[in-house]
């Protein structure tokens, strides 16, 4: 009788163990099948390629983009380095995945981008790549697919500069600065940030004057519309790789 009970107990125990094992496997499978956190792709707020004829250009993702802020011919009271640093920080904050890092460097030979005053002579040969027209600022690169060529340094050639930017310290009218509550230096920072937006891949101007990428910018930092547009560009396959 004792033996029968022991056998019966063992059988029940095995059945229970099997049931629990199967339940554990089922629960593990259910856990494993759950979806990962997923972000929806966001559309751009405006066409980011309107100035480039539909071509997308940008830096490779994850890249550190070195910027040289050229102090040459700086008007009194201006600080180009501070203006560029503010603009770079503003753009870094709008991306979600560290798609780029903007770093200021002290040597134009180590720079991917040079930002200078309009009055200062260029440090690189922009070849025939400069588009017509002018304004408070201009961003120049050679739109050659699949990869934009290096703009060689005038002093000895070489280097790694692919984008040349100038900004005009005096381009924003005094009345506009007053109405927007901006100092002249803050106006310079706005222009530098706007041009950096072009250098990062926004080949367009927004039709909303509240956006940093408006043709006559007064916004201190990228708007949500600018941010969405840049994030969109960063994840399109580039026609031109900077």
């Amino acid at each position: 009788m004792v033996g029968d009970r022991a056998r019966q107990s063992r059988t029940v125990h095995r059945a229970g163990a099997l049931t629990r094992s199967l339940a554990a496997l089922a629960a593990a499978a259910a856990l494993a099948a759950c979806d990962s956190p997923t972000a929806d792709e966001q559309p751009p707020a405006y066409d980011p390629t309107q100035l480039t004829g539909g071509l997308v250009y940008r830096w490779p993702l994850g890249r550190t983009v070195a910027i040289y802020a050229d102090p040459t011919a700086a008007p009194a009271g201006s600080d180009m380095r501070a203006a560029v640093a503010a603009g770079a920080a503003a753009w870094e904050q709008v991306v979600f995945y560290r798609e780029f890092e903007l770093r200021l460097v002290d040597d134009p030979r180590a720079a991917d981008v040079i930002v200078h005053h309009r009055q200062a002579p260029r440090l690189v040969d922009v070849m025939d790549c400069e588009p017509p027209g002018g304004g408070g600022g201009k961003t120049v690169f050679c739109n050659e697919a699949p990869e934009a060529p290096v703009l060689p340094l005038l002093d000895g050639g070489g280097g790694r500069v692919k984008v040349d930017i100038y900004v005009d310290y005096f381009s924003i009218a005094e009345a506009v600065l007053e109405s927007e509550g901006l100092t002249r230096q803050e106006g310079l920072a706005v222009l530098a940030a706007h041009e950096l937006g072009h250098a990062l891949g926004i080949g367009a101007h927004s039709d909303d004057p509240a956006d940093l990428m408006a043709p006559a910018p007064v916004a201190r930092r990228p708007s949500a519309r600018d941010a969405a547009t840049l994030r969109y560009v960063l994840h399109r396959p580039p026609d031109i790789r900077l």
Partner: peptide, 13 residues
């Protein structure tokens, strides 16, 4: 571990 986030734009963290 599996991803913290998968973005439909092709990015994975």
């Amino acid at each position: 571990s599996t991803a913290y986030v998968r973005d439909d734009n092709g990015t994975t963290v």
